[in-house]
């Protein structure tokens, strides 16, 4: 029999908090006891683990790799949607992408990296924009890479199947008609869009091995889970990964305050777009069109 699920003792909480921090750099505040119970309670039940105490002792085993990754998985927040916040995607389409394409015309190559891409809506939103509004890119070499630490999210992203709830959120109906088909009660994204994005299960706090060829680094709603030091380290990696005239895009409520010496905001309302300090503002922008 499974004992009435599971109360989380202080020490166990601390162990799990430290474990998640060490593994994924995700900070769980001291008052987030309930969050750990709420997210890991169902997991230990599913795994047939008797209590948090047993969970902790299993995590201590060097052979607990798969369980460790499921615990990290469960502790990530994967909230996302197609065209999240709408406006940044508008700016990209209207101002940033046309100029970037102009500048890369001779190489015919664009590289986008999506850090913390969750179930794929963000890279797929960009892929749909590229397909729909920039048909000339069909002959270009487009490299879109989505990376996330959660194996479950990467599995879902690769699969490209979304619930009605998910396609109701932020996805223009025109793109639904153009790029999706019904699969039972769910919706499947067409192969033509899915094949544009590669997904990788990766930890952003490990070396990303990017070689300075990224045109836009999307890092939206990810830094918030990290502490100052980890944010800074990651942004340094982003700097090293970007081309000298490349861009960083953060989430709607995020800034690079802790990295002002590396990045400068592109003067555009609500876009949360940054370029490297020391390069002249590489994009010519009309004042924000509402």
């Amino acid at each position: 029999m499974i004992a009435p699920v599971a109360t989380l003792e202080r020490e166990e909480f601390h162990f799990i908090r430290d474990f998640v921090y060490k593994t994924a750099a995700i900070v769980i505040d001291e008052d987030k006891h309930y969050l750990v119970e709420y997210r890991l309670g169902p997991l230990i039940e599913r795994e047939g683990i008797r209590s948090f105490r047993h969970l902790v002792s299993e995590l201590r085993q060097p052979t607990s790799g798969p369980l460790r990754s499921r615990v990290v998985d469960a502790m990530t927040t994967n909230e996302t949607s197609f065209f999240r916040d709408a406006r940044p995607f508008d700016h990209l389409r209207r101002a940033v992408l046309p100029q970037l394409i102009e500048r890369r015309r001779s190489e015919k190559c664009l590289t986008f990296f999506f850090g913390g891409c969750s179930s794929g809506q963000e890279p797929y939103s960009i892929a749909m924009i590229l397909r729909q509004f920039f048909p000339e890119l069909d002959t270009w070499n487009l490299r879109l890479t989505g990376a996330d630490i959660s194996s479950e999210m990467i599995r879902r992203a690769r699969e490209g199947v979304y619930t009605q709830f998910e396609i109701n959120r932020g996805l223009p109906a025109r793109l639904l008609v153009q790029f999706f088909e019904k699969a039972g009660i769910h919706w499947r994204l067409s192969e033509s869009i899915r094949s544009m994005v590669q997904f990788e299960e990766r930890n952003l706090t490990h070396p990303l091995g990017l070689t300075g060829n990224v045109d836009i680094f999307f890092l939206r709603n990810v830094l918030i889970y990290f502490d100052q030091e980890e944010r800074r380290r990651l942004l340094q990696q982003v700097r090293d990964g970007l081309r000298s005239d490349g861009f960083l895009m953060l989430g709607a409520a995020e800034t690079t305050v802790f990295c002002n010496d590396l990045f400068v905001p592109v003067p555009m309302e609500f876009s949360n777009l940054f370029h490297l300090k020391g390069t002249p503002n590489p994009i010519n922008l009309n004042p924000c069109q509402a």
Partner: peptide, 22 residues
């Protein structure tokens, strides 16, 4: 939220939101 997101897509200003929803 879905209604709000769709109106954002259509460029309809949301009176209750000074800035787009986070």
């Amino acid at each position: 939220e879905m209604i709000q997101e769709k109106l954002n897509l259509l460029g309809v200003p949301i009176p209750a939101a000074a800035a787009p929803a986070a």
